Amino acid sequence: MMRLKIMIGLTVLVLIVLNYSIYQKEEIIDKGETVLLELAPVDPRSLIQGDYMRLRYAIEDDAFKTASSVDIKSGYMVISVNAQQIASFVRLEDETPLADDEKRLYYHKTYGGVRIVPDSFFFQEGHADKYQNAKYGVFKFDDSGNHILTDLADQP
């Protein structure tokens, strides 16, 4: 009987944690600031996985030029957001406070460059035409720097 109560208690705890995580992500989507990351050329579709697009961002190349000279595997880069909401690389995070138009974006360094996650976008079957000319990843950022990829866009 005691094991049953413990199992029920743990199940309820897991459900509470999962629902709170979902709630946080929904808050970012609803109230977050929109930021566009320019996409870099990459093989756009995966034939094996279905309606899925592999993403690479233009600022990864700029960040790699700086990150390749430091011995840090992952961390935050600082991006600046212009009036059209398009982000550009500024620097790797240091002790400098962020300006009003700057945001923190998590990266990790690989052998071939710098990666920003998410690096893929799944879409509904049959909607490939909508995304094939995408030039920007549409992100929502909250005040803490948490971000979610919400869409792909052809123009700002």
Rank of each mutant, 00 (worst) to 15 (best):
106 Y>A: 13
34 T>E: 04
115 R>V: 11
115 R>P: 04
143 D>V: 15
60 E>H: 03
94 D>R: 04
76 Y>P: 10
145 G>I: 14
116 I>P: 00
79 I>P: 02
138 V>I: 15
57 Y>S: 01
57 Y>V: 00
84 Q>M: 12
151 D>R: 08
126 G>R: 05
110 T>N: 03
49 Q>Y: 14
116 I>S: 00
22 I>C: 06
140 K>H: 15
108 H>D: 11
81 V>Y: 01
156 P>F: 10
56 R>P: 05
3 R>C: 05
55 L>P: 07
58 A>V: 07
67 A>M: 04
82 N>T: 12
151 D>E: 14
152 L>N: 12
86 I>C: 00
129 D>Y: 04
54 R>Y: 15
33 E>W: 01
25 K>H: 09
56 R>G: 09
78 V>R: 03
111 Y>I: 12
56 R>Y: 06
5 K>C: 02
118 P>Q: 07
144 S>N: 15
16 I>V: 14
118 P>R: 05
70 V>Y: 11
145 G>W: 12
12 V>N: 07
148 I>N: 13
60 E>T: 02
116 I>V: 04
34 T>D: 01
33 E>Y: 02
40 A>Y: 03
152 L>W: 08
71 D>S: 11
133 N>L: 11
61 D>W: 04
116 I>Q: 00
15 L>H: 10
65 K>G: 11
67 A>H: 03
145 G>H: 14
107 Y>R: 01
59 I>D: 00
127 H>W: 04
108 H>S: 09
29 I>R: 05
67 A>S: 06
72 I>L: 12
150 T>F: 10
50 G>M: 09
107 Y>F: 10
121 F>V: 06
83 A>Y: 07
26 E>M: 06
117 V>R: 05
20 Y>K: 09
80 S>L: 06
22 I>G: 07
102 E>F: 02
143 D>P: 14
119 D>N: 09
33 E>F: 01
59 I>N: 00
123 F>T: 05
4 L>C: 01
103 K>E: 05
139 F>V: 00
19 N>V: 11
131 Y>W: 09
9 G>T: 13
48 I>F: 14
143 D>S: 15
116 I>A: 00
143 D>L: 15
105 L>M: 15
50 G>S: 12
130 K>M: 11
101 D>Q: 06
150 T>I: 15
30 D>P: 02
141 F>R: 04
41 P>K: 09
103 K>T: 06
61 D>V: 06
127 H>S: 08
95 E>T: 10
132 Q>N: 13
12 V>F: 08
47 L>D: 15
101 D>C: 02
61 D>I: 06
112 G>H: 10
88 S>C: 07
4 L>R: 00
49 Q>N: 15
33 E>V: 03
130 K>N: 13
13 L>V: 14
39 L>N: 03
151 D>Q: 13
29 I>Q: 04
92 L>K: 03
147 H>C: 15
155 Q>I: 11
118 P>E: 06
132 Q>T: 13
102 E>H: 02
17 V>A: 14
73 K>T: 13
1 M>D: 07
4 L>A: 02
152 L>E: 11
86 I>G: 00
79 I>W: 03
59 I>C: 00
38 E>K: 01
145 G>A: 14
18 L>I: 14
41 P>M: 04
116 I>C: 00
112 G>E: 13
62 D>C: 02
77 M>A: 10
53 M>W: 05
12 V>R: 07
145 G>E: 13
